[in-house]
Design a protein around this nucleic acid. Structure first.
Lengths: 183, 183
DNA sequence: TCGTCATGTCAACAGGTGTTGGCCTACACT
DNA sequence: AGTGTAGGCCAACACCTGTTGACATGACGA
């Protein structure tokens, strides 16, 4: 065979991640993705069924949050911020989700599930109850997603120019307070 | 005449703001906007020239930041957060900009200009110099835009359920620190 | 050696998009 | 009453989209 089925599928998926991350759901066309993967558009349909299912496959990922119970309580903020920055720059799946979830309802739902389902329980330990934990997770999301938005999507110059350490230094106290301050 | 030229123009602009805010740039079609304004699509072209220029007209607005020099220094954070919440819920122009700037480069540039050009100088007073002011404005933008993203676009439930006062109470210290903490 | 099947291409469909130009029609003015 | 014109509609253009089905072609097992 010219290429293994799995290889092509992986190539399509990689191209899809790049296009979705760069252009968002609507402007990332199946034709462009197929061209990037050096394959016919119809193969994308054969392997993934539809554009929506291709997107679902491309946006499938995990926050891989560290076990926060092993972290000293006063280091929670810095640990979380550093982890998010690293995770964000490591692969493009988060970028895909953020870019698309602004115009695509399904992607927004997925982001909701991720931040409620993965961040919520992780921060539950310091919180006073389920509702309090959810609210604290939400507050952390506003700061962390806002940073990602400004740094990676909008590219606000002063935010782009900050080093990773500077960002951690500025944001860690914020996140720390959202997690541990008495409500 | 059936309608004054200015009236139709205003109707188109209102419909465009609504559609751009709800669907983003790509999915908001001229045909749909024209239908909302009860007019033929070709009239949109006649009045605004092109979809891009219609968008530019719809996204033209002002942050209307208050004069921060008149505010006591320790109230800066609370004042700014409250003002942004109010501004965000008052009209749809900010929503238009946020939704579109994620996939539309021109809109992102406009957001950059607004937050650098309007927020930057306003916070310049407490800062130590132009570069420092820009960085502080950027940090404020991450928190404020992140809140708008989570509350109005992604609709994260815990963030949506918070009252305006609760949001001010949680975010004000963050913004206050970004503005006035020694770097 | 031959047939089978996975891998891949080509061409086309049906629908939607921004955009254009020609035509109509109701009003205001002479 | 006649006419000019501003306001509006219609039909079409050229292009792009996701999606489909018919056809090719390579590699492998019998």
């Amino acid at each position: 065979m010219r290429r293994s089925s799995e290889d092509t599928k992986a190539a399509i998926l990689a191209a899809a991640r790049e296009r979705f991350a760069a252009d968002g759901y609507e402007r990332a066309t199946i034709r462009a993705i197929a061209a990037d993967a050096a394959i016919d558009p119809s193969m994308v349909m054969r392997y993934f069924g539809s554009k929506e299912r291709l997107f679902a496959a491309a946006a499938d990922f995990d926050l891989r949050l560290p076990d926060l119970t092993a972290i000293p309580r006063d280091r929670l903020g810095a640990t979380l911020v550093a982890h998010f920055l690293e995770r964000w720059e490591a692969d493009e799946a988060l970028m895909v989700l953020l870019r698309t979830s602004v115009t695509n309802a399904e992607a927004a739902g997925r982001l909701r599930v991720i931040f409620a389902g993965q961040l919520g329980p992780t921060v539950a330990a310091p919180a006073a109850g389920p509702a309090d934990a959810a609210r604290r997770a939400g507050l952390v999301a506003t700061q962390v997603l806002g940073m990602a938005l400004c740094r990676y999507v909008l590219c606000l110059p002063p935010v782009v120019e900050m080093t990773r350490d500077e960002i951690v230094a500025w944001l860690a106290p914020t996140v720390q307070r959202y997690l541990t301050a008495p409500s």
